[in-house]
């Protein structure tokens, strides 16, 4: 009985998540990741599957379905694809329990049959989901723990727009060292303002500047710390619009760029893949031009993209919750996190 209700639970969760994605009604990718994980948990708890193969199939189908619902969001499919890898590993360890097996066996060409039913697999996967969920919950904090390693006393840090991870990171750093923060407002949404408000409350010396002033201020900046929407497979970023030009400026002045990202932001997709899965999101141009201005809007095309693609050579270092890596190392992380398909 309890299982039957669990079954319907995950179907409802899936529908709700899909609908929010389709409608574009969600606040942060973190929210999406958490909801996806909760969905996966409910599915694994249900009686809808018998063996690892079925779970993996479901995860893959669901990832596809959610990607289709909102092509610009990668968090749900990243979480699910990561679980596929976890299921594979859990399956192998269970299967080979008691036998001596090396990791090299896993990578060999022999095709593994995942349809074998293993009684303890469910609790293993649920355990892995639990780990992942605590990782999601504490992601920002564990990244912030690295702050003291990267930020030295009296440094001038520039950041762009508002990222909650960056916010936690800077506050942490300010506890140990004195620092100054320059925030680029980041039009047309000006999330930078909110960050400035929050940092001043924590008594951090904060300067809010216009996007256009980034170049003139850059010579004073010691480091740039930004968040990102997605880290792509080539080490590039899908980050808030306006990042690209500011990071180019940073390159010109040779200012190091630190990118903070929780693990679910790492995507196995390349920026220009055949399926063009990495897509931008264009929102209403009302922040850029007044709708009342009838003559103008009838004759001018106004685009309001949310994201920029930033090539990997502009990034100096990624700080993930599982450690810091250079962009050139992303391929290794991908290999550890996702299955090769």
């Amino acid at each position: 009985m309890a299982n039957a209700s669990k079954e319907s639970q995950y179907i409802i969760l899936l529908q709700q998540l899909e609908i929010s994605l389709k409608r574009g009604r969600y606040v942060r990718s973190h929210e999406l990741a958490t909801r996806t994980l909760r969905l996966a948990e409910k599915y694994v708890q249900s009686d809808s599957w018998k063996n690892a193969e079925e779970v993996m199939q479901w995860l893959e189908n669901t990832a596809d379905r959610l990607t289709k619902a909102a092509v610009s969001e990668s968090a749900p499919s990243n979480v699910l694809k990561r679980l596929i890898k976890t299921v594979q590993e859990d399956f192998m360890t269970r299967k080979n329990q008691g036998r001596m097996h090396t990791i090299s066996r896993l990578d060999s060409d022999t095709k593994v049959d995942y349809s074998e039913e293993l009684p303890d697999l469910r609790s293993d996967i649920l355990g892995a989901i639990l780990d992942l969920s605590s990782e999601l919950e504490n992601g920002a904090e564990s990244i912030a723990e690295d702050a003291e390693k990267h930020i030295n006393a009296n440094e001038v840090i520039m950041t762009i727009g508002r990222s909650r991870t960056v916010e936690a990171f800077l506050k942490r750093a300010a506890k140990i060292n004195k620092l100054e923060v320059i925030i680029v407002k980041c039009g047309p949404f000006y999330q930078g303002k909110d960050l400035a408000k929050s940092l001043t409350k924590s008594k951090i010396k904060t300067t809010l500047i216009n996007d256009t002033a980034a170049f003139s201020m850059m010579s004073r900046v010691d480091k740039i710390v930004i968040g990102t929407h997605t880290v792509l497979a080539n080490g590039g970023l899908k980050a808030i619009a306006g990042c690209h030009q500011i990071l180019l400026t940073a390159k010109y002045f040779n200012v190091p760029v630190l990118v903070l990202a929780a693990s679910y932001k790492l995507s196995p997709e390349y920026p220009f893949s055949a399926e063009m899965k990495i897509t931008n999101r264009f929102v209403s141009p009302e922040e850029l031009i007044d709708y009342k201005d009838g003559d103008m809007i009838d004759n001018v095309q106004v685009y309001a993209p949310v994201f920029d693609y930033v090539p990997p050579e502009l990034v100096s270092l990624f700080i993930f919750n599982m450690g810091s890596h250079a962009p050139s190392y992303i391929h290794r992380l991908l290999h550890d996190t996702y299955t090769q398909t």
């Binding site: 389709k22 574009g24 009604r25 619902a69 264009f282 209403s284 141009p285 009302e286 809007i297 106004v302």
Partner: peptide, 15 residues
């Protein structure tokens, strides 16, 4: 021209 975002053609709402 996306003034109605997210009610725009490439958002699959209602489909």
């Amino acid at each position: 021209e996306r003034w109605t975002y997210p009610l725009v053609p490439d958002m699959p709402f209602g489909s």
